[in-house]
C-alpha cells in the first residue's frame, strides 16, 4: 500500500522556485491499479520519483509498504519495481544480462534470477530474444525488457511512469494485461499517464493532477456521476482548463 501525505516538492531553476507539487495526498491500496492522470508538467513523474525514493519531498511524506520515504529509503527500494518514462536499458546487454545485473543488485541468487527471468520472459513473450543485444530491439520490445527488469526481484509495489507511452496497440495491450495480472496477484500498482483510455481500461481508482495539485479523485463511475459526464474526457477537460483559468 502507498499512502501519500501532503507531498510537496519545490525545484530551484535559474534563481526561481518552481512548485512542482503543492501538497498532494492519496492512497493506493493493495490489489488495485491506481492512476495519476494529468497533462505534461502536472507533477505525475515528480510524484512517482518521490515514491520510489529518487527524489526527496520538500514537505510531507509517504508511506510505502509501511516504510517512511524520508527515513527508510533502502527498505522501500526492496519493495518497489520502478519503470521510468525512458526505457532505461543498456544497449550492449542482452535481456538476460539486464535481469542478472539488476537481480544481483537486489541481492538475489543466480538460480533465483534465472527462474524469475524464465517466468517474466515467458509472460512478456521475450523468450526467443533473451540472448540478443538490446540495441537491435524495437521500442515495444525494449519496454517489455524494462518491465521485466523492474519486476525481477518480485516487488510488492509497482511504480510505472507512462508505461504505454510510444507503444503500438499490441504491445500496449500486453503491458496493460500484465499490469492487471499484477493487480490480481495482490500487488499495489501505481501508474502515471496522460492517455485517458489507459485510465478507463485498467485503473480501479485514479486522481487527476494539474499544476501540482489533485483536482479530482475516485473511480471512473464516481467521477462521471459527480461531474454529470458521459466520458472521462469531458471530466478531464472540465477540470483542467478550469484550473488554468484560475
Amino acid at each position: 500500500m502507498i499512502e501519500a501525505k501532503n507531498l510537496k516538492k519545490h525545484f530551484k531553476s535559474r534563481g526561481k522556485t518552481v512548485e512542482a507539487l503543492k501538497g498532494i495526498s492519496f492512497t493506493a491500496r493493495d490489489g488495485e491499479v491506481f492512476g495519476l492522470l494529468g497533462p505534461n508538467g502536472a507533477g505525475k513523474t515528480t510524484t512517482l520519483r518521490i515514491l520510489s525514493t529518487m527524489l526527496s519531498p520538500t514537505g510531507g511524506t509517504a508511506i510505502v509498504e509501511g516504510h517512511d520515504i524520508l527515513k527508510e529509503k533502502a527498505a522501500i527500494r526492496w519493495e518497489i519495481g520502478f519503470l521510468s518514462t525512458e526505457t532505461g536499458l543498456y544497449d550492449r546487454l542482452t535481456p538476460d544480462d539486464t535481469l542478472k545485473f539488476f537481480g544481483k543488485l537486489a541481492g538475489m541468487e543466480a538460480a533465483d534470477i534465472a527462474k524469475r527471468a524464465d517466468y517474466l520472459f515467458e509472460k512478456l513473450d521475450l523468450k526467443k530474444d533473451r540472448k540478443r543485444l538490446i540495441s537491435g530491439f524495437s521500442t515495444g520490445m525494449k519496454q517489455k525488457v524494462s518491465i521485466a527488469r523492474a519486476l525481477v526481484h518480485n516487488p510488492s509495489v509497482i511504480v510505472f511512469d507512462e508505461p504505454t507511452n510510444g507503444l503500438d496497440v499490441l504491445t500496449a495491450k500486453t503491458v496493460t494485461d500484465f499490469l492487471k495480472e499484477m493487480r490480481n496477484e495482490g500487488k499495489t500498482v501505481i501508474i502515471s499517464t496522460h492517455i485517458l483510455s489507459v485510465v478507463e481500461k485498467i485503473c480501479d481508482r485514479f486522481v487527476i493532477i494539474d499544476r501540482g495539485s489533485i483536482v479530482a479523485e475516485g473511480t471512473l463511475p464516481e467521477l462521471l456521476k459527480k461531474y454529470e459526464a458521459a466520458e472521462l474526457e469531458d471530466v478531464f477537460f472540465r477540470l483542467v482548463p478550469e484550473r488554468r483559468d484560475a
Binding site: R49, S52, M54, R77, F82, S84, E86, T87, G88, L105
Partner: peptide, 14 residues
Amino acid sequence: EKGTIATLLVSQAS
C-alpha cells in the same frame, strides 16, 4: 543520455 540513471538510482545499490 541513455536514460538508465533513474533505474540505477532506484536499484538496491546505494
